[in-house]
Design a protein around this nucleic acid. Structure first.
Lengths: 227, 227
DNA sequence: CATCTCAACAAAATCGATTTTTTTACTAAA
DNA sequence: TTTAGTAAAAAAATCGATTTTGTTGAGATG
């Protein structure tokens, strides 16, 4: 059932954009670090123009900062910003969840169940971290997909990426993971029964729990810049 | 204590970004239009690299669409998208307004009053449209500035720009303008008295009114693309 | 000993030209 | 008349080199 046999190859600037985006979210660069463009060029094996275009897009997206005549740097991380991101994410996702429950049809239910299944499968291989991460992202996407607001989904996606930058600093925690997974299952049940109120409360808890875990790991090492 | 007497000049790519952004919001390009890069290069008198970097940033911001190997195009405009933008804008701005009222100090009040004054002054010269537009933007910014959420303000700004793309299609309407201006004044009063409930309702009306005006002008000529 | 100047250096930004891909225009076959 | 096929033209994407700007450190100056 899959699509596009050979599909259309993306241009270099899009590929490097995706790669760099993932590397930034996964924390492969230190917060506050200044990116050496020619080093990136060598490391990712791309030309200067596609690389600069990707850096510009990432800066507009909020995963990089562009300083006037002195290149690009990874944004510093602050506890307050994590609180801002998590709080707003909770509000926007609850908003989207309500609309998704109201507008969701059986196709949406199917996609949610499919995403839940993929997430459970990914759970069976704890060593494949990135596969679980992707399945997790897709599950949350599927849950809100039917909300009907293109822009709300766009902002939620952006906040999710920002949130992950912080969350990924924390070491894996099996106990927490287990609670989160149980919540995923409960969210599906509440979605099928369209229990908006309970689902909102649960999603809020879900995000709040991730938030507190990330927060605990971010408290001291918050690398700030000197003046 | 103030800064930079002559300030630091922006680089070419930032200048062309701002210019193009304004031209896109002001509707100087047709919706759905494909941008001819070399024509832009000649028109704006910039080189290829800064221009392409600006186009990439605008695409990440949502004011352009990048199609795989065939350049950039101005996004098509749809009535449904206007409804989405306006509805979400109302929700996010009401959210920010509540937080701004709770966190706003006297410095915030001063800035709101200052912005209101500039807006009234701009009103005295109806021929200087762009000055009024800027004062109007700044007024709404000042009103929400103290909400404490960097990301919420960022999204509101982005939605405001998107909304303006539609709103600016409508011809000036003195009657509507008068109502909107009265609402600005009332918003300031409610801000000073911290009447959250009334202010939320008023801001919602304010956006709803702009929305319906833009909607009326967007109904038929919504230029769509063929297949 | 601290501070300032300025040349040498390193990095970012930009330009002009090349390569790759898409679109167009034309021709021939069904 | 329509449908492929193909070569020329146009446009987008990329590359390599140049220009501009910021940084560093040695030596001069107070």
């Amino acid at each position: 059932m899959t699509v596009s046999p050979s599909a259309s190859r993306d241009m270099a600037s899009s590929r490097i954009f995706e790669t760099l985006k993932q590397d930034l979210i996964r924390g492969r660069f230190a917060a506050g670090e200044k990116l050496a463009i020619s080093a990136l060029k060598d490391h990712y094996q791309v030309g200067l123009s596609p690389l600069r275009e990707a850096l510009n897009r990432l800066a507009a997206y909020g995963l990089l900062e562009q300083v006037n005549q002195r290149g690009f740097r990874v944004p510093a991380m602050h506890l307050e910003e994590l609180d801002d991101i998590a709080g707003l994410r909770a509000q926007l996702e609850c908003m989207a969840l309500t609309q998704a429950f109201q507008a969701g049809d059986s196709e949406w239910e199917s996609q949610v169940l499919a995403a839940q299944h993929r997430l459970r499968r990914a759970d069976e291989h704890p060593e494949r971290v990135e596969e679980w991460e992707q399945a997790h992202l897709r599950f949350h996407r599927a849950l809100l997909a039917s909300c009907g607001s293109h822009w709300l989904l766009r902002f939620i996606e952006q906040l999710h990426d920002q949130f992950d930058r912080y969350r990924r600093l924390a070491p894996p925690n099996p106990g927490v993971r287990e609670v989160l997974d149980r919540q995923h299952g409960e969210l599906v049940e509440l979605a099928l029964s369209r229990d908006i109120r309970a689902a909102r409360a649960l999603l809020d808890d879900h995000i709040r729990l991730s938030h507190s875990v990330a927060r605990g790991c971010c408290e001291s090492p918050a690398s700030d810049d000197a003046t």
